[in-house]
Write a protein that binds this DNA or RNA. Sequence first.
RNA 1: GGAGAGGUGACCGAGUGGCCGAAGGUGACGCACUGCUAAUGCGUUGAGGGGCGUUGAGUCUCUCCGAGGGUUCAAAUCCCUCCCUCUCCGCCA
Length: 427
Amino acid sequence: MIDIRLVRTDPDAVKAALSRKKVDPAEVDALIDRDEALRRITAERDDLRAKVKALSKEVGAARKAGDAERAESLAAESRALGEDAKVRERQATALEREVREMLLLIPNLPAPEAPGGDGPDDNPVVAQGGPDAASYPEHQRVPHWETAATLGILDNERAVKISGAMFTMFRGQGAALARALCQLALDRNADAYEEIRPPTLVLSDTLTASGQLPKFADDAYHVGRDDLWAVPTAEVPLTSIYRDEILDEADLPKRLMAYTPCYRREAGAAGRDTRGLLRTHEFDKVEILALTTPEQGPALHQELRDRALGSIEALGLTWRWVEICTGDLGQSQHRQFDLEVYAPGVAMWLEVSSVSWFTDYQARRANIRYRPAGEAKGTALVHTVNGSALAVPRVWAAVVESNRQPDGSVAVPEALWPYMRGARVIA
RNA sequence: GGAGAGGUGACCGAGUGGCCGAAGGUGACGCACUGCUAAUGCGUUGAGGGGCGUUGAGUCUCUCCGAGGGUUCAAAUCCCUCCCUCUCCGCCA
């Protein structure tokens, strides 16, 4: 959620910032209107309550003094005010809900330094590295699903039998490779990040805190019988770890990482990227996340990007870093970097990591605060940043394609040797 | 899933209708005492919303004792529903 106080004090700045995300200023005006009504009703309600409290005390005093008549008349007066207060209370509750629902749907303000643009095509490439995308030889211009089928390391046909379309299954060395990638990402970040193994079925409140609900309910799997949601990313449980808590500034930044499976319905993506591993309902990912002070936010955002990049470089892949323009920025994001790797077999740049700075947008939803050092009282909202340290399927695909040997085998990148039970080649 | 007990502030814990945002203790912080430490004494110490004022001066007010409803002039306290924790039984990787 954005700060309602900012909406009150500087509505024009909010509208201007949000217009870069294509939000209609009328939405902001509607919010202001409801907020004003809420504050008016709340003031009336509180005033009535104060009177009821004062009168109630007098009733007690009169009773004690044995003045039953006066007590009764005061009680009657208080009763009448109480009726009024109850009416106001109902109105206030309805307005509170309205304001909150509006606030939950209004996106975060984009960073001033986020580039303008209408969509993905306008995302500027900031940097690139690894082998030249044009340098891959002919024997590496083979889609991973073909190589994998030959080697018997991917069995999507049977995955579909088991779970339906867009589910995948790794086999043998392919399964080991998938697990090795996770292990690599965890080990590379264990120097600074606490490893978490969180639950992956979560409450609606948890999914709301990180921004997926209420707007993106269709994208997530819901277990109706128990009203639980399958997490689309470890960001969801990690963000909620300190929900409704107050941290010490000395404990910030708090760095966390988790390997989890991720579940996505891909509701709007029917028929797209259905071959191989480019888009699947269930995949493994290592997520890194930090809770920071506002001052630490930008630095941690860079740190996360560099860490995500570190694993990709260790694997020897061709990569590029794009910055997401305002028209393509997600609802909760203030600023976002994407990392893409080049997959020579499918001749595509694959998005493998998305590193985002949310300012206090998630923290306000999740109510995660900290006590600024040196100040006896008062709290402030933390900032959240997170990113994929490594998302398995697309990296798996890129590794298989860019390490394919002329004989059809796949050389295991050296960084993964410790995790492949001695295998240097998948054949 | 069945039976029972319980959920109060950073923590422990008292509180069965008004004098309770809440005793007492622990912890933390400040001051005093002390050669230092310790001990002792005194004091301070929750969060959130709104109004007026200020820009970090305050002041008034409302809300919060697991959550949500209800009874009452008045609810931490009485009633209802739900959630969670613990113990025993059942089941089970």
